Simulated scan of single mutants.
Amino acid sequence: MANTPGAKKAVRKIARRTEVNTARRSRVRTFLRKFEEAVTAGDATVAKDAFVKAQSELMRAVSKGVVHKNTGSRKVSRLAARLKKLAVA
């Protein structure tokens, strides 16, 4: 258990940061789900709009340190590939 003042403060900071990061990660997942739903529905225009928002949110999570840079890029790349596949079909 934390018993120095610095350690106690660190525990408080970690708890706050965890809460914020959980909310950010949840927000990213929401936008990814909206993109998935648009692709499943087969609506290219809605999917494109959802893709732009999901990409923006993913990159924001990367800049905040919630998601690693390569992970964010990989996810965006896969989303773009799915959007392109939908547009061709």
Rank of each mutant, 00 (worst) to 15 (best):
K85F: 06
R78I: 07
A15K: 15
E57T: 12
L79W: 04
A54M: 07
V28H: 04
T40C: 01
K34T: 03
L86D: 02
L58Y: 06
M1I: 13
D43L: 04
V20N: 01
A81S: 12
A50S: 15
A87Y: 04
M59N: 12
R27K: 07
P5K: 14
R29F: 07
R78C: 03
V52H: 14
A54V: 06
G65Q: 02
K75Q: 15
R25C: 00
V62Q: 07
I14P: 05
K48T: 15
R12H: 11
L79H: 04
A15G: 08
K53D: 15
R74P: 03
P5C: 08
V62S: 05
K75Y: 09
F31H: 04
R33Q: 02
R17I: 08
L32G: 00
H68G: 12
V76E: 06
T45R: 14
R82I: 08
E57V: 09
P5F: 09
T71P: 03
R24T: 11
V66R: 02
R16V: 15
R29G: 01
T22C: 00
A50G: 09
H68A: 13
R33F: 00
K53A: 15
R16L: 14
V46P: 03
R16A: 12
K64S: 01
K48V: 10
D43S: 10
H68Y: 06
V20D: 00
V28G: 02
V76G: 07
V39C: 09
R24E: 10
K75T: 15
F35Q: 00
